[in-house]
Design a protein around this nucleic acid. Structure first.
Lengths: 202, 202
DNA sequence: TGGTTGTTTGACCGGATGGTCAATTCCGGG
DNA sequence: CCCGGAATTGACCATCCGGTCAAACAACCA
């Protein structure tokens, strides 16, 4: 549950979670099968269930490890720093997460779409608390006239929406931007920086 | 295929599509079962398959009807109108779609997450063409100095991302904004209007 | 009313899938 | 080297699920 003991346990748990991430993010929870995950992991199906009690247990293990990583950039926003710089850094880090961890983003999006049956508690607990706290920081910055006035929580929503879009709707982005396999992220980074700079500057 | 003939066919087709939308949007294609859809529709499973050849046929029928409706507000953007007003109207209409057709939005998002296996062609065809055309309009407005300069396609992406977020991540929005069942859409409308107004004004 | 066409369903099928288990193999420590 | 626990797996099970089909039923018209 907490820390596997032997090296084999550690390695196989990691291999299974990596394979499960690949399959779950591509097909959703219901669409993924244990056989697929086992094949990707290079293990037999009963062997999977030797390490995790059930398909759901694998899914939960993935999700619970995910939310923390996902919120780290928001946590890193420093109330003592320069407001615009802090927010732009947050946007940049979040966009990097979308680029480097797009499977995690899609896994998370899948869970949200289904109504978050497995992490609702975390959303209404840790997530809500962190957002409310950081919204307070944003509000203070606005009251000090250091960034423009707006609804701080919706401001955070817009960072999430704009960055995650490039991971979750990757197919659409690629389809629209053309068949040339050009990486859309550099352009996106430039675009989002100008967007938030114009939005925030008082 | 095109138009059902009898009144019974028309009514039952509609009932099935409505039920399928409910179930598919909540559980995804693979997560939905014909029995669930039949139960919601108030019909028997074989009766469903009397009207649609397969589970996939129902899904395709839903999706193909959807993309057009979804793009209507973008199509309605008038090159002859006032640029900022046209774009703000587009944002407002798109946000209304998210509010009034959130199930459709989630159905679409589900399809995107899976890599759009059933509508990739439409994305690379009609959708791409329309976006490129409207991007041209936006570019002209920028060249005339009527709105600020930025990447026009990413500007469209940001409209999609920001509006659809409220439908697709509804649980998260509700969880963060608190348990009071307050409607987040009025606030969202205000926020998005100020965001795009500041972004676009030259 | 009778017949023809359109509609509905109970029963069933075959394959997929999550999960179990007894038996076997592997491996590290004494 | 050997033994006990850890790791692995082939075979199997029960259930679910998409889809079929023949038979029953309803609707419409002559």
């Amino acid at each position: 549950m907490t820390k596997p003991r032997t090296r084999i346990q550690q390695r196989n748990s990691d291999v299974i979670l990596e394979a499960a991430l690949e399959v779950f993010s591509a097909h959703g929870f219901r669409g993924a099968t244990l056989d697929q995950i086992a094949a990707v992991a290079g293990l037999s199906k009963p062997n999977l269930l030797y390490y995790f009690a059930s398909k759901e247990a694998i899914h939960v293990a993935l999700l619970s490890g995910l939310l923390d990583t996902w919120l780290d950039p928001l946590r890193a926003m420093d109330p003592e720093g320069d407001p615009v710089a802090e927010l732009l850094a947050y946007v940049r880090r979040k966009l990097e997460l979308s680029r480097d961890y797009s499977r995690e983003s899609r896994l998370f999006a899948n869970e949200m779409l289904q109504g978050a049956p497995r992490i609702r508690a975390a959303l209404e607990g840790d997530l809500r608390d962190l957002v409310q706290q950081k919204a307070g920081v944003l509000q203070a910055w606005m009251d000090q006239g250091r960034i423009a006035h707006m609804h701080p929580v919706h401001l955070i929503f817009s960072v999430w929406a704009l960055t995650q879009h490039y991971a979750d709707f990757e197919v659409q982005v690629q389809a629209v931007l053309g068949s040339d396999g050009a990486d859309p992220y550099p352009e996106a980074a430039v675009y989002l920086e100008t967007l938030f700079r114009r939005l925030l500057t008082p």
